[in-house]
């Protein structure tokens, strides 16, 4: 009977997909940058996922599939309304920026364990903002890699880009993230700006 079939689908969806709401919500927050849009995005992701549930290959990575839907929704509808396209020069940050700053800024002398010290004192919100300030393309891969622990290949599949592109975006995203984190550390007075 169609009714039983629908019920079964609903239960199956609740069992397989709904446990990933936290991950979907986190990603939505980092991408949309505000709670209201993030909630919309989460809701749409799940409704769309439900519609397409029959096409989801059972047993494959449901979280990755949901985040793929979310990424698509975000790219096609959300970021267009925020007109986010920033002008950005990508290569103006050195590698290992934060590390070098810590090593070279006289901070090593002041602090027993500068890295740990720095990170312990940064607020959760600083770290979130540091991520959210990344240009969108980089933010997506950084979130998927750092927060959700996906492999390069999984990220490539989710975002729909080449493996090499994942690597380069992640590389640049990391550099920028370090720079952003450094700026928050300076702002909080945790470290001194290099003279």
């Amino acid at each position: 009977m169609p009714e039983q079939k629908t019920k079964r689908k609903e239960l199956e969806f609740q069992r397989e997909a709904l446990p990933h709401t936290d991950a979907v919500y986190r990603m939505a927050l980092r991408m949309a940058k505000n709670k209201a849009d993030a909630e919309d995005l989460v809701q749409e992701t799940f409704l769309k996922a439900y519609r397409f549930w029959d096409s989801f290959e059972k047993g494959s990575n449901c979280k990755a599939w949901l985040l793929k839907i979310l990424t698509n929704l975000f790219i096609t509808s959300y970021h267009k309304k925020t007109k986010e396209k920033q002008q950005f020069t990508y290569d103006d940050v050195e590698s290992h920026y934060l590390y070098n700053q810590l090593e070279g800024g006289g901070n090593r002398q002041q602090l027993e364990d500068p890295e740990r010290m720095l990170f312990n004192q940064l607020l959760d919100d600083d770290v979130k903002s540091a991520i959210e300030e990344l240009p969108e393309d980089f933010r997506v891969v950084v979130v998927l890699s750092f927060l959700e622990g996906f492999s390069y290949q999984e990220i490539a599949d989710i975002v729909g880009i080449q493996l090499g592109t994942v690597k380069s975006r992640l590389h640049r995203g990391r550099k920028l993230l370090q720079k952003n984190l450094w700026q928050y550390a300076v702002k909080r007075g945790i470290v001194k700006e290099k003279q």
Partner: peptide, 15 residues
Amino acid sequence: LTKKVVSEKAAKEAV
């Protein structure tokens, strides 16, 4: 450490 701290500090929210 960066990776660890970032994931710890930015991945706390629950829906």
